[in-house]
Nucleic acid binder design. Structure first.
Lengths: 217, 217
DNA sequence: ACATGTCCGAATGTTGACATTCGGATGTCC
DNA sequence: GGACATCCGAATGTCAACATTCGGACATGT
């Protein structure tokens, strides 16, 4: 079973580059993303950049206003609460629907990779990538396109929040990643819908609590 | 307290026109939306139409593929299940968060208007508009921008599904609209979080069940 | 009949030039 | 000094021409 290749246009390419630049810290939260500037750097026309920025806006990574340009989103605690409360609702639905469909072996592999990385002392950024992969796998398993799209509209924001959480130096993320995801796999294996749903929601809420104290405002 | 005026560009204008045309039935599900054709009819450039279609894609009303154009979405039962299961999760969250914040008087006015319309025999389309207004009010009351955006990504699709449900002639929609929304207001007034959440979810699921039997495939 | 190869028209993707809008700097009046 | 009007540069919004891609029609060979 092959994954569809799907050729991409310049707009998606541009979106990828700009997204990476934001994650890399080149454009900190609140920074302006000027179309001409980006077009020159990426060597594409402004139109393509414009469409790329529209894609990032769908992901909630940037916001734009009429004749006022596009900026990287801010990271207030209010934004965090918004993102994580919606995410909790989605995560509960996704995890429940994934029962019996998700590839448990793949999830186990990801958790094992986390555990290995943890003892070997890899950067938290890499653990975070595995973390996101883990949840992607669950969403994909549901086969619900709308659910996946709703998750994608939050995904980049979650990533950005967790990145700052990591970069602010709090290492307590490393303490819980493995255990919580391992527990999720166990519950998914047992297949008790209510317990899985509740734990998935709690998993998200606890991440918010850990984050909330560290943000401005 | 005034609503911000917010000048709009041609893209949003175009999106509005096209959306209306779809709801009006000018472009039935599956129909192709050709950029040149629309640009000529709306008397704007293709670029603006393109952006307008991108907005509609965010709302899930249309789908586009690379070099293959944009089409109105299909209405399979699978799509209905997807939309309504995500909606149920959002609706549960929104209704719970709206407790104590939502303008109960406004909701009551809307339900009364439905009841009046029902006895006076207005078209189901108008009841549907009030129905959507009702839920918009709840989402707005939460003040959660991400939640509102997630709802907007489903809103037009819900509208389209309900429209076809109405147009296929089943009048059982009229039988339950008023009662279910009246009950929602009652529960919101009491403010019991769990009961409200459960009922809001059930409200959505029952709409799906009523719809499911009437769609192709 | 079936599969494969090749054209060609139609539609979308991309681009650079032109028009419009914003918001701060400056100037003016009271 | 503060409120208001007026400019101006920088950035975005809009447009129409050019480039690329798709997928069906037709042809060809098996």
């Amino acid at each position: 079973m092959l994954q569809k290749a799907g050729r991409r246009g310049l707009a998606e390419e541009a979106a990828d580059r700009i997204r990476d630049a934001i994650f890399r810290g080149d454009f900190p939260p609140g920074a302006a993303l000027r179309e001409v500037e980006l077009a020159a750097q990426l060597d594409v026309s402004r139109g393509s950049v414009r469409e790329g920025l529209a894609i990032l806006e769908r992901e909630g990574l940037v916001q734009s206003a009429w004749h006022r340009g596009t900026k990287v989103i801010d990271l207030t605690t209010r934004d965090a609460r918004e993102v994580y409360s919606v995410r909790a609702a989605l995560e509960g639905l996704a995890t429940r629907d994934a029962i019996g469909r998700v590839d448990l072996a793949a999830l186990t592999r990801l958790v094992d990779a986390m555990a290995r990385g943890l003892t070997e002392g890899v950067a938290s950024e890499e653990l975070l990538a595995l973390d996101i992969d883990f949840h992607d796998t669950i969403y994909q398993a549901t086969g619900n396109r709308r659910l996946i799209e709703a998750w994608q509209a939050l995904r980049s924001q979650v990533y950005l929040f967790q990145l700052t959480r990591i970069r602010l130096g709090h290492n307590e993320y490393r303490a819980v990643v493995v255990d919580e995801h391992r527990e999720l796999v166990t519950l998914l294996t047992r297949g008790q819908a209510d317990a899985v749903t509740r734990f998935a929601e709690e998993h998200v809420h606890s991440a918010l609590r850990a984050l909330a104290g560290q943000l401005s405002r």
